[in-house]
């Protein structure tokens, strides 16, 4: 490989990780929600509200840390509505999630209007000393920003919690067989609330990454379906946070590739066909995974989407 090829590959992979980070955060969050049995289709609305909140706070205060925290809180609050409706009121989770998405897209457009065209403080990258000097790997893996590192660490931690701790076992049992979990003394509703809120906070962070790192601007509807793609990635990941890392970066790669192809002049006349790529890949992935999971029957939380009513 020539030096130019290497440089090209490095920048492509670095872009893939950046593009994959919002997806990773949102996907890992959704995995928690779904593992506990609650399908949260409000992710698109949660992400866009996270994006708006982070940009707004960064624009008003210039405090990037505050912006990130605020985005997580708003994401959690929005998911709290979904949790209340689907857990306490036993509402239809699909419709409730859709309502959250519509609501989030609406509110962000409504409140974000004065922010269009403004510039806010951007999250700077924090290369890791020594590690960043490793050839090829350094610039790809260790020259990112804190949210990139955080997203990987949080995925690893959440994997550990889910599969190696008592609490994780409770989450999985609540998502598999809530009445059994209930009879064993697990608080079904509380467990589900915690998982949905964690999912919402991570979704908010994913949105924040879009508006203060990836495209540091406020653009109405800037999530462009990433919330839905993240929901598809939970299936690809077979509801495993480690699988989410792989899936999110593969998808980030598709997005990065699409930009590269445009940059070298493919599809400049009509970029629409290239822009379809992520959506086609999502459908293709779902088809592949469905046949794979059908055969193996692993992962899918058995009680996903069903409200729990004691004694029913």
């Amino acid at each position: 490989m020539t030096a130019i090829d290497t440089a090209f590959a490095v920048s492509l992979l670095a872009h893939a990780i950046q593009a994959g980070t919002p997806l990773l955060l949102a996907t890992v969050g959704e995995i928690y929600s779904e593992r506990s049995g609650v399908l949260n289709l409000g992710l698109e609305g949660i992400m866009i509200m996270g994006a708006l909140t982070a940009f707004l706070v960064s624009f008003r205060t210039g405090d990037i840390a505050l912006a990130i925290v605020a985005a997580a809180i708003v994401g959690a609050l929005l998911s709290l509505i979904h949790a209340f409706l689907s857990i306490t009121l036993k509402a239809n989770q699909i419709v409730s999630g859709l309502a959250i998405s519509i609501f989030g897209l609406g509110v962000s457009g409504f409140l974000g209007r004065p922010l269009i065209g403004q510039i806010a403080t951007k999250l700077q990258s924090t290369p890791i000393p020594l590690l960043q000097d490793i050839p090829v790997l350094g610039p790809i893996l260790f020259s990112g920003d804190v949210l990139i590192y955080f997203s990987v660490i949080v995925s690893l931690v959440l994997w550990f919690v889910l599969f190696r701790t008592r609490f994780g076992l409770n989450i999985r049992s609540v998502g598999e067989n809530p009445s059994m979990a209930d009879s064993l003394g697990v608080n079904v509703d509380l467990t589900r609330y915690v998982c949905v809120l964690v999912g919402g906070a991570l979704g908010g962070l994913g949105g924040a990454y879009l508006s203060i790192v990836y495209t540091p601007l406020w653009i109405e509807g800037m999530t462009a379906g990433r919330g839905w793609i993240a929901i598809a990635l939970t299936i690809f990941a077979v509801w495993n946070p480690l699988g989410a890392i792989l899936g999110a970066y593969l998808f980030g790669g598709v997005i990065a590739l699409q930009f590269r192809l445009q940059a070298i002049g493919i599809g400049t006349e009509t970029p629409q066909l290239l822009l379809m790529l992520p959506y086609f890949v999502t459908i293709g992935t779902l088809v592949l995974m469905s046949s794979a999971t059908l055969r193996k029957r692993v992962g899918v939380p058995a009680a996903l989407g069903n409200p729990y009513v004691r004694g029913e």
Binding site: V95, A99, I102, G109, E220
Partner: peptide, 27 residues
């Protein structure tokens, strides 16, 4: 001079109330 997405806020909220109130109509 409001954004058109204000309509989405109305729509989202109405749907949230409908789906929440289903607890009364279903149970």
């Amino acid at each position: 001079g409001l954004a058109f997405s204000t309509v989405l806020v109305f729509q989202g909220l109405i749907l949230l109330f409908v789906v929440g109130a289903d607890v009364i109509t279903q149970y």
